[in-house]
Design a protein around this nucleic acid. Sequence first.
DNA 1: AAGTGGTCTAGACCACCGG
DNA 2: CGGTGGTCTAGACCACTTC
Lengths: 253, 253
Amino acid sequence: MGTTQLDTVQEPKYWHLKTVLSEALDSEFSVGEILPNERDLAARFGVARATLRQALEQLELEGRLQRRRGVGTTVAPPRMGVAVGSEQHAWPGAAGDAWQLVDCTVAVPPAAVADILETGREEQVHTVRRSRVTHGQHVAAELLYVPASSVPALSAIDAPSGAARARAVLRELQHLDLEAQDRAVELGSARADDAKELDRLPGAPVLVVTTRFYAEGRTAAVSVATYRADTCRLTFGDTGGVEIHHDSERRAS
Amino acid sequence: MGTTQLDTVQEPKYWHLKTVLSEALDSEFSVGEILPNERDLAARFGVARATLRQALEQLELEGRLQRRRGVGTTVAPPRMGVAVGSEQHAWPGAAGDAWQLVDCTVAVPPAAVADILETGREEQVHTVRRSRVTHGQHVAAELLYVPASSVPALSAIDAPSGAARARAVLRELQHLDLEAQDRAVELGSARADDAKELDRLPGAPVLVVTTRFYAEGRTAAVSVATYRADTCRLTFGDTGGVEIHHDSERRAS
DNA sequence: AAGTGGTCTAGACCACCGG
DNA sequence: CGGTGGTCTAGACCACTTC
């Protein structure tokens, strides 16, 4: 990349810098390539390191860069498309649904979830933890909240623990008649536990997908899935039964 | 809020600070209330202003705070739910669809859009600009790209300009038989023009919703809608025909 | 003019990864 | 161990809003 001077304009330096870097990434770097370190880059552009970092943060947010402490900054591959619309309505755990069981506990859910489930704010529910791996990348962590009333066959005490218990909860769920589901997407920042599972630092930007499952006229379960915002593009197949071909579900290694 | 000391722990100060502030927001502030200014807050917690700002940035990202230059930092209302799933498939511009026409130009779209449309990268297309207002708030800016081949009745030169031209393009679109649509959501940062329309600074986090409209076996139009990530929760109605009642579509003033 | 948040600097030290 | 990105400081000045 050239050592182009930053013109003295009435535009924040970090914004200008981001543009310059972005163009350099397009033309002079290939996916996976390592950039010079932050101190060198800052010196090359004649700005303080903090300013340079502001530009890099933006580019990372847009999925153009990937930074790892102790390693360096690399050019990120294009975001991968991750199907969220879920082909037809199906309970979590239906045949091969891209999610991998981690474990299951019984715990009091966050107040926001309790309100949606219409359980009391102190009431414990089954909490299944799952994680999603796509194209070899860890892209999402999920917590699935299932009130005991949705899986009456499961006694809270006799079920085995961990993954076996998780399987049991999901198996019981399939017995219910799924009437509808409801989804919302919003921006969030990764909690410490999710961040660890996603191999990011706490606070990393994530797309939070909240899904509400309806059965027997009420909310039978709620899923809160946390997707890495830097590497994922969430896709919703709304194709009305028509088969669509994409050549865009790619991700270079 | 208390002047609680930040314990010396092995956890970033800004992270701890964010937690403390978050709890204070829950218990001691109400929506719309103005926080003390950044210099005072930093002094009160015994940290540098930059560190305090890191915590505030996180809270703003999560939609808990709203900051405005020259004004101050206020407690944000809960995010508003914005329907994106679009009740059944429909062309943009169908009866009362929450969007407001701004204008229309003929221009070369970004390369990524040209690729999806399968037009040449130099080919000009109709570009309709719309904006979305929900609950009195400016929540989204959209660019709708329509190749001339999708609206053959419109000659590129004789159509009127501005909003009138936009209406004409949308009217012609309705004549096509919409076969399917396809949607993706990803995180982005606001370009200067979108930022201005959304009353944010350039670079503000946005949720970018890309919708592809299929008709006559090909992609007939592409919409790129930019939603304010701080104030919006995108909802997708996947309710399979069942009527669902929410009590959550609220937004305090 | 006064007060706010936004940008920027030039340093320092820390946590983590790799050889 | 050396090198990387992550955190933090204590200042300064700027852009904007409000009065």
